[in-house]
Structure formats: C-alpha cells, structure tokens
Amino acid sequence: MSKQFQFKLVLLGESAVGKSSLVLRFVKDQFDDYRESTIGAAFLTQTVTLEHNTSVKFEIWDTAGQERYKSLAPMYYRNANCAVVVYDITQPASLEKARTWIRELQRQADPSIVIALCGNKGDLEARRQVSQEEAKKYADEEGLMWGETSAKSGDGVSDIFMAIAKKLPLTAPPPRAGASRNTPGRPAVDLNKQAAGDSNDPCAC
C-alpha cells in the first residue's frame, strides 16, 4: 500500500542567491542564467519518492528576496513544515541574511519546523567566500540541516530536498485536502478561531 504525505516548504534568503533557480532545478530540472526576480511568492509542487512505497509531496512557496517583500514572508512560513534558507557561497553577506531568517524562523515559525541551510552557487568554487566549515559549524550549533548546491549544475539539489523529506515526521496521518490546509494570506492566524469555523468573521455581512 502506498502512502503519500504532503508538506509545506518555504524558501527564504537574500535576493539573487538562487532560490527560484533551486526550485526550477528541483521541479523541472531546468536552469536559466538570469531568472526573473520573484514578486511576492511563487507556488509550485513536487513529489519525491522514499522507500517503502512512501512519497512526499512538497507544496513549495518560493518567496521574493528583496527586503521590501519581507513583510509578506510570515504568511508563507507560518505553518510551514520545512524551510530551506539559501545563501550564496560567493557572498558572505548572504550568509548573514540567512542567519537573520533562521533567527526569525526560530522565533516565529512552528517550533517543529525542519530547517535546512543551503549554500548555493557551488559551481562558482573559484569565487568562494564562505567556507564549508564556517557554514556547517553554524548549522550544527543551531541544529539545522546543511548542504551545498549548484542550481546551475544540479549538484546537491535533489539531495537536500530528499534529506528534508526523510527528516520530516512521517508518523502523522497524511493531511486531508482542505481541512488542515496551511495557507498563506491572513495576518495573525488564530488556529482556535479557524477551528471554530470563522464564526466571528467580521465580514459576515
């Protein structure tokens, strides 16, 4: 009997570190040198197959990196089961930004969220400014998964998503469509209120 699990995954990180390129590689196995900047967020899905007839379907929210769009981020990481926080191995400032995102996730996101720190642009080894040791040490200290990828060559991309899939708790029953849906879009979701069926919706006019 095959089982499918569904999880919400959010990508965060500084502008132009390659978030959308990682997703494009993971979902369609393609790459564009200059991928248009993401406005707001983009929604995609991809399924990976694990052993024992188990598959994990990722509902992916690829967010915009520019600071101005940060105000929209909470609705994408709220209720996310996992997050991939991306930095660019040639840009030390992007690792700093990744740390900021991780702190925010640790404070604001679901406490059980699985976070992977991902150093992208591994193909630009000659211009590397962030050592593997430094990033790995930080990830270990914070208890995060860590890996390096190249969306351009494809190296490491499926590995990191596969590793996340394996780490997610597959004990819970698969979420049913609709009912337990975690959705972006509302500021300050009150789960109790939602469970009560939006009875005190001010717009019930």
Partner: peptide, 21 residues
C-alpha cells in the same frame, strides 16, 4: 474561502508588475 486560497498568494505579482510576466 473553503479552500483557503488567499488573493495575495496569486494576485500580488499581477498588481505589482502591472501584469508584466
């Protein structure tokens, strides 16, 4: 409402880029 699809999740790009892309 039933499927909890918020308008911001698909229309943000429409309004911010004036339907470019």
């Amino acid at each position: 409402k039933k499927h909890m699809v918020s308008t911001t999740s698909y229309a943000t790009k429409w309004y911010i880029t004036l339907f470019a892309n």
